[in-house]
């Protein structure tokens, strides 16, 4: 994200600043201020613990805020495709900005088969390649997200669905770690 902001807006953001942001948001939510949207942590999909450094918006559906075995890659592909579209738009309007963004897109697209075959960044090619790989992944990622979200809605309070849980361990033995003493953080 810091790379994107720097390329797009020419502003350097210290990645560490995001941690403070999350704390402040949590406090604001606790005060019950009347904002419609908060920046919330993404949650892992087993115990719904907050993931450090991975941010989401509170008005996104729960499915989108969960991270499972295919989600990181799928999200990366979605972001790459999105940035490729932005770059295509920017190419005509702001060549300097486009140049900066192109190197970010190139870096992100390098791991996608077929995305960077030509010379330079071909936005259509990048977008197509990213979408193709994503479509294949979604057959696994989507069902996983739906199942995990349904489970979360079943088990968690509204607060926990936004901010995640802190899991404690009850007892030892085979059931260890499956304790349900989830408390809101």
């Amino acid at each position: 994200m810091a790379d994107y902001i720097e390329a797009r807006f020419g502003e350097h953001v210290e990645p560490r600043a995001f941690a403070g942001l999350r704390r402040d948001e949590r406090r604001a939510w606790g005060k019950g201020s009347a904002r419609p949207t908060y920046i919330v942590p993404a949650l892992e999909g087993r115990f719904y613990q907050p993931i450090r450094g991975l941010l989401a918006l509170s008005d996104w559906p729960l499915e989108r805020r969960l991270i499972g075995p295919w989600s990181e890659r799928a999200d990366h592909l979605a972001a790459t495709a999105q940035l490729a579209r932005q770059l295509a738009w920017l190419n005509d309007r702001d060549p300097d900005g486009a140049k900066r963004l192109a190197s970010v897109v190139a870096g992100m697209a390098r791991s996608i088969p077929g995305a960077m075959d030509g010379t330079g960044v071909d936005t259509a090619r990048v977008e197509n390649a990213a979408e193709a790989e994503r479509t294949a992944l979604l057959t696994r990622d989507d069902p996983w997200r739906r199942e995990a979200a349904a489970r979360a809605r079943d088990q968690l309070t509204d607060e926990q669905q936004l901010w995640g849980t802190t899991v404690g361990v009850v007892g030892e033995g085979p059931q260890e770690g499956r304790g349900r003493s989830a408390s809101s953080s």
């Binding site: 993931i51 450090r52 499972g68 996983w144």
Partner: peptide, 8 residues
Amino acid sequence: GIENLREG
């Protein structure tokens, strides 16, 4: 599927 047990 890569289950990331380092995060969260």
